[in-house]
Nucleic acid binder design. Structure first.
Lengths: 196, 196
DNA sequence: CTTAACTCGTATATTCCCGTACGAGATAAA
DNA sequence: TTTATCTCGTACGGGAATATACGAGTTAAG
């Protein structure tokens, strides 16, 4: 149902599209207003080949965002989100922190090129998953309830986005970035033990 | 020493410059790639007047960033940073969270138009103030030491920047934004009471 | 009042990027 | 092999933004 619109597409075209989308994901999440030409170069194809598959920049951005969100959905589906919310969050972040960070960056890149309605539509389902987990954690008294839920969701994105940024800047390493990001998120979400 | 380059400048010119810089600060911190024309309009002057005082876009961005950082410095100078680091941080954030958020946004706007060396140079001193406060808090056992100091400094910026963003988006209100931001920052920095 | 500084519009050059048009050559699929 | 698809270069047009050039009108400062 994703892209079975086939009048019949050749295998090499399929491959090109995959490379282009992958390139768009990396380029756009690093630099929100990356050039079409830069993305094509990153993908190893000519600019005109890219235009052959994506008529406009918005199409490309949407494809990149969709791909990232679908990857996130796929990962979320494999993670066990039941049981202790704290442990569930740890599992979730451990396996998908970079995807969430990437999605946040792409979301930023998509603002202004996609209609905001379409944007919310794409982002709604994965965001709801995280939100539900946090809400459950609040109900169980594991996560804090003294701050608005949407704010907490946003902060998770900010922290992960920042972790990816600091990794690129060389201030964090491949080895410690996940640990640092998870610890930071946990300290934001966890219910402080003795709150007046 | 700031701008006494004195061939002798008229009072109205001084006023125009002040309005332009103020407009640049607000416009650029809301929208990193705001147009020169938009900034001039916000300042209530013609585009050509702006060019009369700032030859290039980079000049303008640097002026805006410098002004914000100087305002931050001035505020920092009035805040009592001695005593309990936690309380000092509360005082600091209460009186300057929006300035820090603005500076972070301007810093983002400045990337790419200013040489990165110049950028670090401008940002170095105010960042050091915060860093010193956090370091002292770590030594006193008030702030956590299990995460790298530069990361903690960055997270403070991310959170404040996010708070400003959510305020603009209408997800936080003028009344609760400061409280929410401060509580979030505190929960990231505070030493967890029972750490194995 | 006189001068120099300032304001600011119009016009223009330049640059950058998007998107289209055209077409020749390479390649997968039948 | 035949055919439709795909690749991709060159070239062009349009739009937006930066920056310069010129100049006429306005205003602060001596």
């Amino acid at each position: 149902m994703v892209s079975q619109t086939r009048p019949r597409r050749r295998a090499d075209a399929e491959r090109s599209i995959a490379r282009i989308v992958a390139a768009a994901r990396t380029c756009l999440s690093e630099h929100p207003d990356a050039t079409i030409e830069a993305i094509a170069a990153e993908a190893g194809v000519g600019r005109m080949t890219l235009y052959g598959h994506f008529k406009t920049r918005a199409d490309l951005v949407e494809a990149a965002l969709s791909a990232a969100l679908e990857a996130g959905e796929a990962t979320l589906a494999t993670v066990d989100l039941s049981g202790d919310p704290g442990a569930a969050l740890d599992r979730l972040l451990a396996s998908s922190w970079s995807l969430v960070a990437e999605s946040a960056a792409l979301l930023e890149a998509a603002q202004g090129v996609l209609p905001s309605g379409r944007l919310r539509e794409l982002h709604a389902e994965p965001a709801k998953r995280v939100e539900d987990l946090l809400r459950r954690g609040q109900r169980d008294g594991v996560f804090r309830s003294d701050l608005p839920l949407p704010w907490l969701v946003s902060v998770v994105q900010y922290v992960l986005h920042g972790a990816a940024e600091q990794l690129r800047a060389g201030n964090l390493t491949e080895e410690n970035v996940a640990e640092v990001a998870v610890a930071t998120v946990r300290s934001v979400l966890d219910q402080p033990p003795a709150e007046s």
